[in-house]
Every structure is written in C-alpha cells, then in structure tokens.
Design a protein around this nucleic acid. Structure first.
Lengths: 343, 343
DNA sequence: CTGAAAGCGCTTACAG
DNA sequence: CTGAAAGCGCTTACAG
C-alpha cells in the first residue's frame, strides 16, 4: 500500500492536482466547497505532505539551524542551551518548522556548518549565540545572505537581526545592591573573555564600580566549567585583601564557588556573599539558596524564533530588547562581617 | 548569480548529468578520469548537493529525529539530554546526517511527532528514550515501520533495536558497597515510576537488599526536579528510623538531598551517605564531592546513532550492551556514625 | 563505461 | 474559480 500523494487526493476529491495543492495550502483560488472536499479527502487518506517535494518546489527547507559551538563537556552542565532550545522549538512547532542541531567544538566547525547548510539548502535560516567582537559568523552569514538572528551581542551583530537584553544595567543593579550591603571588594568570576556578553559585562562591572567610587572590582575569566570556576574562586579568596562578595557568570560556577568557600572555612554569606547568573533551579536548591540574576532564556528562544521566521518570510524585524534580568535576593548575600569587612 | 546545479557541473566537466551524479555519489559506472574531472568541477563551482532534491529522488531525508518529551522545566537541569545529543550528533556529523529535535511536554506529543515526521518523510528514523512498560511508542513505530533505536528499556523495546546497560548490576554494586560500609537502612530517591529504567532500578534495589539480608530499603518517586528531590529526602530523613544512606536517581536531586541534610543539621557523610546517579561535573564540585555511578551518556549517543544509521541502511543490528555504570567513591559516603548507626 | 529520459511529489505562473 | 503543464534538482533503471 503506497502512501497517498496529492494526485490521489485530487482524484478522490474530483479536482485537479493544482486545485488540491491550493486547497491544502489554504491559498485563494478555490471555492470553499472544493477546499472542504479536498481537506476531507486528505484526512480520509491520511495524507501528509512530502517534505522533500515541498522543499524542492517551494525552495524552502522549512527548517532552521542551531549550532552548539562548545566542547561537549561544558555544553551539558549549562541549562542555558537546553532552555534556549526548548523556547525556540516551542515557537517553531506552531509553524511546523523543524529545528536542526549541530554540535561542534569551535567556531570553525560552526562556520563550516553554516556554509554547508546553506549550500544544501537544508535550512532557511540560523540562530547565532555567543557572539564575539568582529565575529566571523556575522561576515559569513552576510556573505551567504542567509537569514539569521543573533542572541545578545548588541552593537556587534552587524546586519543580523538581534535579540538582546540590557545586561550592563543588570550588572549595575547587582553592584549597587552589593555596595549598599556594605561590600567594597567585589569579585567577578566571568566566562570566556572572547564572548561579547562577557566583555560587555566586564566593562559594565568596572563602570558600575567606578560610578560608586571606592569599590575595588576584580575579574577572573574561565571557560564556564566548574573546575575553572572553583580555581578562579580559590584565587580570589587567597588574595591578601580578598573580596567579600563574588558575582559568578553561571549557576554551576556559583555552586563551585560556594563549595570552595566551605573548603576554605569561609561561611556564606557571613564571610562571602555569592551572586549567581543566570538563576536556575540549582540556585534554589542550595543551602543557603543563591541570590541570582534571572534571565528568561526560554522567552529569548521563542522571541528569536519568531524573528527568524519573520526574516525568512521576507520581513525586516528590527532588534528586540528583552526584559532586563531581575535580581532575586536570597540567602547567599548579606552585609560583610569579620575582620576583613568594609572600611 | 544562481547557485550551481549538477547540470552546470556536467557541462563544465564535459559529461552527462547522470555521469556527474554517479561520480558525485562515489558510485561505480564512471572512469577514474571522469570522476576526477567531475569532482574538480564541483569544487571549482562551489557546488553543494541540494538536499531537498536528493531527498525527493532518493526517498531519503538524510535526517533522524529525537523527541524530548519532558516538561521544559526538568529538561534543562539534567545534563543527560545534552550529553546524549552531543554523542548522537558527533556520530551523525561524520555521515552528514542531520539531527532534528522536537520538544513536547508528554508522550502524546511525541507520538504525534513521530507520525508527522514519518508521514512527511522528513526523517529516516528516530531515537526513543525513557521507555515505559507497554510503551505506546513501540507499537506506533512498529506500525509505521519507521527505523528506531531505543535507549535503555531492555525487555520492553519490542521489535526496536536497543542500546542498554546492565543497571541492575550497577545497583547491586552500590547496595553491596553501602552494606559493606555498615549501612542497614538505605533510601532511594528515584525518578518517575512510569519510566522503565526507574522500575528496573527499583526492583534491582529491593532484590539486592533482600540478597544481603537485614537491609531495609525504602523508595520514594519524584519527577526528577530538585524540588521533589528535596521533598523526598526530607520525608526519608524525617522517619523515626531514618536511612543512613540515600541513593539518588540524578545528580541534581543528590545535590538537593545534601542541602536538605545540611538544613536538618545532618552531616554528610557522618550522618548521611549520599550516592548520585549519573555522575556529572556537578558531583565533583560539591564539598564533599559526591560518590556517584558514572554512565557514559555521550558514548550511548554515538552507539545509538551508529545503530540507527545501520538500520536505515537496511541492516539488522542486534542489541548492544554498553559498559555497566562504574561506582566512583568520593567523600559523600562513609560508615554510618552516631546514635542512629547500624545494629 | 556513458547518455537520453523518466520520475520523485510537490508548487506555481499561465491560459481558459 | 479551475485545469493542463512546466519546473524544482536530483537519482536511477535502461538502452546503447
């Protein structure tokens, strides 16, 4: 028993092939009556449109791509990507657009993936994350003319559509909060310095410290792994004048930091205040629970997907600013105590 | 400037369209000389095969699908899926096969996804995870005749190809280890009872306890969320004769358990031994680090992908047993101490 | 070993 | 509003 084609439907509905196609695609050119007959026939035969045939004639893959360009090791421990995927896919599913995934250790692999995807026309557009300064992907995608939406990286997304949130403002909120609590020496365990969001946060962190005056900021970069997060924390806490508060660039590194503090005999929050970024279930599980900056990654995903679809349909969506991350104070932050306190 | 097609290549190489196709697909029927001319022409023109056209004529989507049928909330905190995806994709990339992802909250959404994917011929096969007893997916996939590889769930995968590991044996190892340390009352904070791997572990847990004699096992089920993990731990530790050791079905729940113990004034490992499953970077970050059962999810992914490709190519791969999870003793387990100790 | 031709299942101008 | 026809870019028997 062969799978039914559009010809079978047309025959059963007693119309031409093209009438069937128009009806099945909800386009004008057929009467309501004919449309219904065609739809009924399709339902009765259990017809599903052959995706390859449609892609070939409509010159549309009905798929979009996302490259995960991180080592598998740091990919899995970060909830970020899975939340992003969930958000993207939830939006795409409503439009019957497929999400194609490729995992590659670095940006060269990502460039190759974009080239091949576009060359084969196996996707209609892509998402770009972890934008960098003078990002080669921006140039490549412009050259290819492939629709793309960048997440974050405002100011360095070139001609790409962009979805971002005002992280500098959120960083400012965090610094203000810690300073108000009485902290003077504030550390930051940051992510990869080649990522734009890292350097943007770095700059905002330093600027906020300067704005408040008297604040001593110190920054250490990592690859987001718990190991490097722990090492960075150990380094900061071993300084002669150690920070009394540390802001971490991920939840896992914040957990690592808390455990390093315990290992060094420092109490959280009495001896060390800890702020995590982004917030996650993990932060709420800790004891004390971690103060964190929330970011709605799922929402970012749905919004980015919506814009990519618009772009593919020939629209020209402007940038979209997402709500700024919110500071959620929990038990891991408090005024500094002890001999190394403020003043 | 239009993108080059196979006709452009044939013309440039001075051969027929079909000769070009044969050469580009590395099939017999063309001389080495012609083959090289065609390949050169393709390279010079920067030709990439149009995926839709190939899919249509070869009746192959060159893509496989994975449905993530869990609420987005519990999806992101578990490294499992991302590791699996990384493993699968790493294998698929070598064969230029795409991985298509769909996120859906429950198994009904998954059934619909499989139906649609197969109906549209947009994938050539699928992976199935979190197998259940009398799993409706097994029946559906058999009915559709869609190639599929099940991960785990030995004995309930019906006609599906299967990749599994001997978890009952691993559970036995854990129980033996804890008993040898001197534990008598051993708890298990398990995952969803409708998942086969959960009920298999449950049964093995009870069996191992009986085998050792005198061991008192108790099991609580959860949805894998940290919240429920914490609640389950709180329940176990509030019993009159509380367990002195708890085995958790995920790393996040183990972390939740450790924090609940702290909250209740119990020390790990003196008052409570904790075993996590699977091992993850998170376990190594904790202080003390968590004893854990490791499982190579990445490897499971590559192996499953390899078997699915075999299946799609018409092969009939048998089941594949993966190495059993290894118990990695760390600081979170020790002989029980205090008034509620053994005997 | 090669070439002309049909076909995969759709979409889409273009006449009627 | 409808129908006959060409075309999307490949693959694949089938003659030569």
């Amino acid at each position: 028993m062969k799978r039914p084609t559009i010809v079978d439907i047309a025959r059963r509905a007693g119309v031409s092939k093209s009438a069937a196609s128009y009806a099945l695609n909800g386009r004008p050119g057929v009467s309501a009556q004919v449309r219904q007959r065609v739809l009924d026939a399709a339902a009765e035969l259990g017809w599903e449109r052959n995706q390859a045939a449609r892609a070939l004639s409509a010159a549309r893959a009905e798929a979009v791509g996302l490259v995960l360009a991180r080592p598998a090791r740091t990919l899995a421990i970060e909830p970020f990507f899975m939340q992003l995927i969930a958000g993207i896919e939830t939006e795409l599913a409503t439009r019957s657009i497929a999400l194609v995934l490729q995992v590659t250790p670095d940006i060269d692999g990502e460039l190759a993936a974009h080239r091949q995807w576009w060359g084969r026309r196996s996707v209609d557009g892509v998402f770009v994350v972890d934008l960098r300064r003078d990002d080669p992907r921006v140039a490549l995608l412009a050259e290819l003319g492939m629709p793309a939406v960048a997440l974050g990286g405002l100011g360095h997304h070139g001609g790409l559509a962009c979805v971002w949130s005002d992280e500098p403002r959120a960083i400012g909120t965090v610094v203000d909060y810690l300073v108000t609590l009485g902290h003077v020496r504030i550390g930051r365990v940051a992510g990869r310095p080649d990522f734009l969001h890292t350097s943007n946060r770095d700059a905002a962190f330093v600027a906020a410290a300067e704005r408040r005056g008297g604040v001593v900021p110190s920054i250490v970069h990592t690859d987001y792994s718990g190991e490097q997060g722990a090492k960075a924390t150990r380094g900061l806490l071993s300084q002669h004048a150690r920070p009394t508060a540390i802001v971490f660039d991920s939840d896992v590194m914040a957990v690592a930091g808390v455990n390093v503090a315990a290992e060094m005999g420092l109490r959280v929050p009495a001896d060390l205040s800890v702020v995590a970024w982004d917030d996650s279930p993990l932060c709420r599980l800790m004891h004390p629970a971690l103060t964190a900056v929330s970011f709605d990654t799922f929402l970012a995903g749905t919004q980015a997907a919506r814009r990519l679809c618009l772009l593919i349909d020939g629209g020209t969506p402007g940038g979209l600013e997402l709500p700024v991350g919110e500071l959620i104070p929990r038990g891991s932050t408090a005024p500094p105590q002890g001999r190394l306190g403020p003043e």
